[in-house]
Amino acid sequence: MTYQHYDLKITIVGGGIVGSSIYRMLKKNGIEVQLIDPKIKKPFPTLIHSLLLKGKDIELAKLSLNFYKKFNIPYYPFKSYTLGKISSSIIDSWISAGVNISIKFVNWINDEAIEAVGGDGLVSIRSLISYIENIPYNSYIFVKQNKGFIKLNDKLYESDFIILSAGAWSKYLINLKLPVKTYFCWASLFLSRKKEVGSNIIYDYINNFYSRPVIGLGLPFAIMGDGKAIETTPFQQNICIEDKNEVSSRISRRLGEVKELYTSGNFCEATPDMRPAYGKVAENVYYIGGFNGYGAEVGPGLASVLVEEILSKKEDTYFKEYRLERFNDHNDDFEIGQEPHEL
């Protein structure tokens, strides 16, 4: 649906996956929109997109996939193998989403696994974000008497709507308290003796790790991690990864000897239930975030829900379980859980 709201001016603070997605959708609807990215980070070139989630996360992932197709964001499909006990109801939901599922013994994994075709792939996050001309202002959202302003270089600027989508930096860019914590999540580039790791995605819920191809050319290189969060601020340097060797050991149990080549990570944002959230925090200010490491799967999907709500002036009811109000009785004193890779 196309909306004719040319009189609207919307400012987005944060130009990552979600902010860039919102920017594209608003521009396509003829909205005057400005993107301010005060903390430009180097994104991973590609990230996993998966339909092998649960509940309405699957619906958001489908919306995200539609977004990638609509805006010609490169997507590279891969087979995936899931190991561990998965309930039949979750498997049925994957099948209902159009994923071709079969259970078989996989020789190179040396175990029975759920093979999924049409459910997983890598999406070019670099292509999504590089489209945007980020503006590195020293910006801040200042809320006074329930109205938000953009504060740039000690001057206040008005906007019809302000959308805060700066990920791990969001809680530091507004003078309101958000029910989120920030953390560092890492993954390593590994060399394996099994070339299959370079052309398949693995979700191992027995040894608790995930593996994904680097570029998908069938070479024995893969990016692997366990989704474990290290609570910290996004301003901390030299993060200590204490369990890196232990994770390598768990990966080796499944895939044989692997060699770590490089380790990197990003700062992310967690909610108390490790699921994303969006909603109004002031009369003209929306927050969207808490994607807990799976923003590539559900981020553009939830962004489309927010855009629809703003333009239609109607609150969404179908995805109400993601609304920020569910944390009204929470504060930021909670323990960060495991990232949902993918369940």
Results as ranks from 00 to 15, higher is better:
Glu158Cys: 01
Glu158Arg: 03
Glu158Ala: 00
Ser159Thr: 06
Asp160Ser: 05
Phe161Glu: 12
Phe161Thr: 07
Ile162Asn: 00
Gly167Gln: 08
Ala168Thr: 07
Ala168Leu: 07
Ala168Cys: 09
Trp169Phe: 13
Ser170Gly: 10
Lys171Met: 08
Lys171Asp: 09
Tyr172Trp: 08
Tyr172Asn: 09
Leu173Ser: 04
Leu173Lys: 04
Ile174Asp: 06
Asn175Trp: 00
Leu176Cys: 04
Leu178Tyr: 04
Leu178Asp: 10
Leu178Met: 06
Leu178Thr: 07
Leu178His: 05
Leu178Arg: 02
Thr182Ala: 08
Phe184Asn: 05
Cys185Tyr: 03
Cys185Ile: 07
Trp186Val: 00
Ala187Tyr: 07
Ser188Ala: 13
Phe190Arg: 03
Leu191Tyr: 08
Arg193Phe: 04
Arg193Asn: 15
Arg193Cys: 07
Glu196Met: 01
Val197Thr: 06
Val197Tyr: 00
Gly198Lys: 07
Gly198Met: 08
Ser199Gly: 13
Ser199Arg: 13
Ile201Trp: 03
Ile201Met: 05
Ile202Ala: 02
Asp204Cys: 04
Asp204Glu: 08
Asp204Arg: 01
Tyr205Glu: 13
Tyr205Phe: 10
Asn207Gly: 03
Asn207Ser: 03
Asn207Gln: 07
Asn208Gln: 14
Phe209Ile: 09
Phe209Gln: 12
Tyr210Trp: 14
Tyr210Ile: 10
Ser211Ala: 15
Ser211Ile: 08
Arg212Glu: 13
Pro213Ser: 10
Val214Tyr: 10
Ile215Met: 07
Ile215Gly: 09
Gly216Arg: 02
Leu217Gln: 12
Gly218Asn: 10
Pro220Met: 01
Pro220Gln: 01
Phe221Pro: 12
Ala222Met: 02
Ala222Phe: 04
Ile223Asn: 11
Ile223Tyr: 11
Ile223Glu: 12
Ile223Gly: 05
Gly225Thr: 12
Gly225Met: 12
Gly227Tyr: 01
Lys228Leu: 13
Lys228Met: 13
Lys228Thr: 14
Ala229Pro: 15
Ala229His: 09
Ile230Gln: 11
Ile230Gly: 08
Glu231Asn: 04
Thr232Lys: 13
Thr232Tyr: 05
Thr233Phe: 02
Phe235Glu: 14
Gln236Val: 15
Asn238Met: 14
Ile239Cys: 14
Cys240His: 15
Ile241Arg: 00
Asp243Ala: 01
Lys244Met: 15
Asn245Ala: 09
Glu246Asn: 13
Glu246Lys: 07
Val247His: 04
Val247Cys: 13
Ser248Ala: 10
Ser248Leu: 12
Ser249Val: 04
Ser249Pro: 08
Ser249Trp: 02
Ser249Arg: 05
Arg253Ile: 12
Arg253Trp: 02
Arg253Phe: 03
Leu255Cys: 09
Glu257Arg: 11
Val258Thr: 11
Val258Trp: 00
Lys259Arg: 07
Lys259Cys: 05
Glu260Ala: 02
Leu261Ser: 03
Tyr262Thr: 09
Thr263Gly: 09
Ser264Pro: 06
Ser264Ala: 12
Gly265Glu: 12
Gly265Leu: 05
Phe267Asn: 09
Phe267Met: 06
Glu269Pro: 13
